[in-house]
Design a binder for these strands. Structure first.
Length: 293
DNA sequence: AAGCGAACCTGGCTGC
DNA sequence: TGCAGCCAGGTTCGCT
């Protein structure tokens, strides 16, 4: 489910259980997810203590006590569940295979506290890998990542610089992780609606001829920041059966203004438009044709 | 060479 | 009840 707010919510859920704990046993139940696990994945983790759990864009980054980082991406359907020592079973695991293990529970981290952290991923678009901390910035997964949208750098001026000369629609430009890293299909639609900008509009039109920011660039930078901050504060969004690491639900989906709301009246005050759905580069875009220009 | 569509994989929902 | 078809939060690849 995970765009930046959901990954950050997962990070906050895992942090108290994982940081400071030692990995006493790691179960890797299949050879690959989106990519093969690195050689000796479980053995390299066992015995290590987790020093910190961070996030970069949609990646979770766990620092180990030997200078290696465990990098994790949730793909489309990845989720983590924390179970403490006494809990029987775990919330949210309803589908079982003949062997008795919950379906799609691919990795289980058994911690020195007695707790266990289970990674479940039906579609297997997620992955895990191990990278020496010093190599992380130059690693293929990270070196091309764009600006962190909740950092101080994201302003109209930067947006204009990033988008200058681009003929691609704003929708596609905002999904491009090499420009801004962390937005996905939901929060792109939500950001553009908050900014009053059409998803079809050419990205380059947010820069002036001289390369400076237009008013729209400023509005978009502010809209991205506000929608992500609001979503993180709400504990992310819950679609389908996605849940927090403790089984509880995020509730930002109730605050969506356009995503998944085709046919509903546009929520912009004074706007008489109706939320529409279209497909851009193979993904649904939700927008109001009346107040988004 | 930027930009687009298809592919990866599974499950859930809708409609016949 | 069954089944075909469509859709889904992400990313990468290959073609134009």
């Amino acid at each position: 489910m995970p765009e930046l707010p959901e990954v950050e919510t997962v990070r906050r859920g895992l942090e108290p259980a994982m940081v400071g704990a030692r990995l006493v046993r790691v179960e890797q139940r299949r050879p690959d997810l989106r990519f093969p696990f690195p050689p000796d994945f479980a053995a390299r983790l066992e015995g290590r203590t987790i020093a910190a759990l961070g996030r970069r864009a949609k990646y979770l980054v766990a620092d180990l006590d030997d200078g290696v980082v465990l990098v994790m991406h949730l793909g489309m359907s990845g989720r983590f569940t924390v179970t403490d020592a006494k809990t029987e079973g775990r919330p949210g695991a309803f589908h079982h295979e003949a062997g008795g293990l919950p379906a799609h529970d691919h990795v289980v981290f058994h911690l020195s506290s007695g707790a266990a952290v289970t990674y479940n991923d039906a579609r297997r678009f997620g992955f895990m890998t191990l990278v020496p901390r010093v190599d992380l910035p130059s690693h293929a997964l990270f070196r091309a990542l764009g600006v962190e949208p909740l950092g101080n750098a994201l302003e109209g001026a930067l947006l204009a610089r990033l988008f200058a000369g681009k003929t691609t629609p704003l929708k596609a430009a905002l999904l491009d992780q090499t420009l801004i890293a962390g937005l996905g299909n939901i929060y792109v639609s939500e950001s553009l609606h908050r900014a009053g900008l059409s998803p079809r509009r050419m990205a380059g039109t947010l820069a002036t001829r001289a390369g400076g920011p237009t008013a729209g660039a400023g509005r978009l930078a502010e809209a991205i920041r506000s929608v992500l901050e609001d979503a993180v504060a709400a504990g992310g969004s819950t679609l389908r059966d996605y849940a927090h690491t403790d089984g509880s639900l995020g509730y930002f989906q109730h605050a969506f203004r356009v995503y998944g709301r085709e046919g509903e009246p546009c929520p912009t005050p004074g706007c008489r438009g109706v939320v529409q759905r279209m497909v851009q580069s193979g993904r649904s875009t939700f927008y109001c044709g009346s107040c988004q220009r």
